[in-house]
Each structure stands twice: as C-alpha cells, then as structure tokens.
C-alpha cells in the first residue's frame, strides 16, 4: 500500500478486519435481499429475471398493509410509553441521586434487561393471563368473580411487555444527555427569574432532546421488528411485520417476496426515523 507508513495507512489497516467482516456478513447480505426482492420466485429455485412484481404484491396485499400499519402503531405506542415512563427515572438518576450511588442505580436498572428476553416476555403472559397472577390475585381477594379476559392477547398487553423489555434502552441515553447539561445554565435560568417549571421547559428539556431522540430511535426500530412478543403475548392473533417476514422466508419459502417485505419495512422505518429527526431539528430551532 502506498500510504502504509502514514497515519491514515495505519488506521486503514487497523480497521480492515472488522470492516471486512461487516462488509461480508452485513453489507453483502443486505444488498442480496435488496436484489432478491426484485427477482421472480420460481418455487425452490430462483429465476434470474428482474421484476417489480414482489413489491406490487406486497403493496396490493391488504394483509400486508394492515400488518404494517399495526406494527407502526404498536411501535409508536410502545416508544411513547417507554420514553415518557423512562424520562422521570433518568431525571431522577441525573439530578437527585448522589454521584457515588449512580453506578449502583444504573446497575439495578440494567440487571433485568440482561436476563432471558424470552422468559421475561413469557412471564408477562403469566402475569396477565386468564389464570394469571393478576386474575388469580384479584379472585382470591374477592374483587372479581370471573377472570378478566381483556388483559391478554391484545395490543395493550403487547405495549406493556415491550415497554418493559426496552426500558433501559430509553433510560440510559436520556440519562447521558441530562448528565452533560451544564448545571450553571439551570441556575442562570432561575436567577433570571424563570420558575422551576419554565426552566425545565426552556433549558433542561431542549438540552436533553438529543438523549430523548436517541431513546425514541433505539426503542422504535427494534420494536418494529419484534417477533417474540406478538407471537407469545399476542397469541398469534395479532401478528406484526416480523411474523410476516418469518412466514414468507421459512414456512412459505418465498424468499423474493419475503425480501420485498423486509426491504419495504426497513425503508419505512428509515424514512420515519429521518422524518422524525428532521421535525425535531425544526422544533429545536423554533424554541431556541
């Protein structure tokens, strides 16, 4: 290499192994499903003929549109619930907890996140189920005669489960952003006669926005693609887009159509994320 002795040459050689791995195992596979989505399915074999048929099939399909809208709706609800519930905790961690106890609090918050995701999700079924913890508890207290059947197998139960599963993802980025706020700015706000609430609204919240933004994206993107929760908590009655991808790829074995669904879903998520970032930038500009 011509630049081998220089710093950039050394840097390039240093990054080569992980970069090569990411290109081979991530970039090429992603490009492959993009290509697959444009070719015709020949049942077990692939016919090398470019076509838009898969996308036409995806968009004309009412089931796909319904599932896509439902996935978007559920992911947005989950994101809203998770971030709104998490913000006060992050605020508490950053502004109330004594510095030497912060590490312990963060440790406490992250422990549940590292325990088996599948079992955690399943336990919500145990809690919310027909013979579950809530129902049997209420029954033994004599508050209800018959178990409440509206607790499980619906969108609400999916939202609760996912908001639980992604809680640390929301708390940590907001906490980091709050930690970075120069405390003297808040004092300045107060000294200049702003109330505590107005200082929060005009100083703390805008400065915490990068963290909130990160939290929204970190929660929204994986929940869109979640497979386990709709399967277990939705009882198969409320499939989301991941279930559709799985069915096309494995059960029905129509890889071009499955690829088209995956690419479409990815595109929609990317567009929404970009739109969200753009709107947020404008929102921040208006306020400052």
């Amino acid at each position: 290499m011509a630049a081998s002795g220089t710093e950039s040459g050394q840097g390039l050689r240093m990054i080569a192994p992980p970069l090569l791995y990411a290109v081979l195992m991530l970039a090429i596979p992603l490009l492959t499903i993009l290509t697959f989505s444009f070719i015709r399915d020949g049942y077990q074999i692939v016919i090398w003929e470019l076509t838009l048929e898969n996308y036409r099939a995806v968009w004309a399909d009412q089931i796909f549109r319904a599932l896509m809208l439902r996935s978007l709706g559920v992911a947005m609800l989950v994101t809203l619930a998770t971030v709104v519930l998490a913000f006060p905790v992050a605020y508490f961690l950053s502004f109330v907890v004594a510095p030497r106890r912060k590490a312990m609090w963060i440790f406490l918050i992250t422990i549940p996140f590292w325990t088996s995701y599948l079992i955690r999700v399943f336990l919500w079924k145990v809690i919310l189920g027909y013979n579950g913890v809530i129902n049997s508890g209420l029954k033994s207290l004599g508050l209800i005669e018959q178990p409440l059947s509206f607790l499980l197998y619906n969108t609400g139960s999916i939202v609760v489960t996912l908001a639980h599963a992604y809680a640390p993802f929301a708390i940590l980025p907001i906490y980091v952003a709050l930690e970075r706020i120069d405390r003297s700015l808040l004092e300045a706000g107060r000294d200049l006669g702003e109330s505590r609430a107005m200082t929060f609204w005009r100083v703390t919240l805008p400065l915490a926005m990068p963290g909130v933004l990160a939290a929204v994206l970190i929660v929204f993107i994986p929940t869109m693609g979640d497979y386990v929760t709709p399967t277990l908590i939705g009882g198969g009655k409320i499939p989301m887009v991941a279930n559709l991808i799985q069915a096309q790829m494995l059960d029905i074995d129509n890889k071009p159509l499955g690829s088209a669904i995956a690419v479409t879903a990815m595109l929609i998520v990317t567009l929404l994320a970009a739109l969200f970032l753009l709107l947020n930038r404008r929102f921040l500009r208006v306020r400052t």
Partner: peptide
C-alpha cells in the same frame, strides 16, 4: 439500529 430479524433474514438468504 437494525432490527435483528433483518440481520437474520439477510444472512440466511
């Protein structure tokens, strides 16, 4: 920032 199902599906293909 990629749903894991996308990583799985694309590698599988």
């Amino acid at each position: 920032v990629l749903p894991e199902i996308i990583v799985g599906v694309s590698l599988l293909v």
